Simulated scan of single mutants.
Amino acid sequence: MRITVFRKLMADEFGSVRGEMVAHDHVLSALGGLTPDQALESGLPPKEIWLAVCDAFDVPEQRR
């Protein structure tokens, strides 16, 4: 998954503004205490980050 796809999925799921806020501000234990943006910057795969976000926010399986 590309970062652009990750950003689109975030916007589609949460709305563009809230998606950016979640990516920037929400710390996820599944990502070692990083926010999604920090995890991207550290080199974690976008798909792994997306799945961690989905788990944290109970995104239904069909939208993952």
Results as ranks from 00 to 15, higher is better:
P46F: 00
F6S: 13
G19N: 08
E13Q: 12
M21P: 06
E61M: 04
L28G: 04
D58C: 06
E41F: 01
R64E: 07
R63H: 07
V5L: 02
D55H: 00
R63P: 05
L44D: 04
M21Q: 15
D58F: 03
L28E: 07
F6A: 10
G32K: 06
I49C: 02
M21H: 08
R18Y: 02
V59G: 05
T4C: 10
P45S: 03
S29I: 10
A52P: 07
G43P: 01
L28P: 06
D25G: 14
C54S: 04
K47A: 07
L51M: 08
S16W: 09
A23F: 06
R7Y: 09
L44Q: 14
E13M: 11
V27F: 10
L34D: 09
L44T: 13
F57A: 12
L34W: 05
V5P: 01
G15M: 11
L34V: 06
L44F: 09
V53Y: 09
K8P: 08
H26N: 11
M21C: 12
M10V: 05
D12A: 10
R7W: 08
E41N: 03
V17L: 04
A39F: 02
G15W: 08
S42D: 01
D58M: 04
G19W: 14
Q38K: 04
P36S: 03
